[in-house]
Amino acid sequence: MPPVEAPGTLDAGVFRSVFRRHAAGVAVVTAQGPAGPAGFTATSLTSVAADPPLFSFGVSVRSSCWPTFSAASYVAVHVLGAHQQETAALFARSGADRFGAPTVWAPGPHGVPLLEGAAAWLVGRVAALVPAGDHRIVVAEAVAGDPHGPGGPLLYHQGAYHRLPDPSAPVPAQRSTGAV
């Protein structure tokens, strides 16, 4: 086992490398602001509590969408399906026109942008913005949602997107090899 570093001295590269080993679901988070819709790709989506229904995600205070999220009363989280790798990449790209073509979206509950084709989505009322280093943890109470979108999950692991099989897809019959 490698030596343990003293508290507070862990190299940022080591920290990022550890979390690259953690497979995470991929979500796009959106909000509506005075200048229009804003959104970003997140792997930090977490269920916080069931009663009341709370979820959280992290957003960098250095991101271009932070001003919109810092003032938003409502946000939407979209759990992306395996078919949405391009959407994940678009919303992760700095300077991209995230809500232009080919993105298909419409205003949802409380005016938040809802992306078409997500595996699932929630709209939440922002309950807290918790300081956490150069990020804020947004805690929101779910007020609307739909878990019935298409496809299996999209995952992020080791710096790349990955797909799991769609659990609702029929399992192909296996052929017998004739061996006993």
Rank of each mutant, 00 (worst) to 15 (best):
A160I: 05
S47K: 07
L154W: 07
W121D: 02
I137G: 12
S47N: 08
D166K: 03
P102H: 07
L54W: 02
G100W: 04
P102F: 04
F99S: 07
A23M: 09
F69V: 01
G117F: 04
A106W: 06
A50E: 12
L164M: 14
G152H: 09
E116T: 08
R20W: 00
P7V: 06
R21F: 09
R20A: 03
L54E: 00
A142T: 13
A179F: 12
L155E: 01
A118E: 00
A24E: 06
R175G: 15
F15Y: 13
A6M: 07
D134E: 15
P131Y: 09
D134F: 15
V104E: 10
L45Y: 07
A173T: 11
T9V: 01
S70A: 15
T103N: 04
A173R: 11
A6R: 13
D11W: 02
A38M: 05
R16K: 11
A88S: 15
A120L: 11
A12Y: 07
E86A: 13
T46Q: 13
H110F: 03
F40E: 00
F99W: 05
E141N: 10
W105H: 06
V139W: 03
R62H: 15
E141C: 13
P147Q: 11
Q85K: 10
V26L: 10
P67D: 01
Q84E: 12
P153I: 12
A12P: 15
T87K: 04
G124A: 04
L115I: 05
G145S: 11
P102C: 07
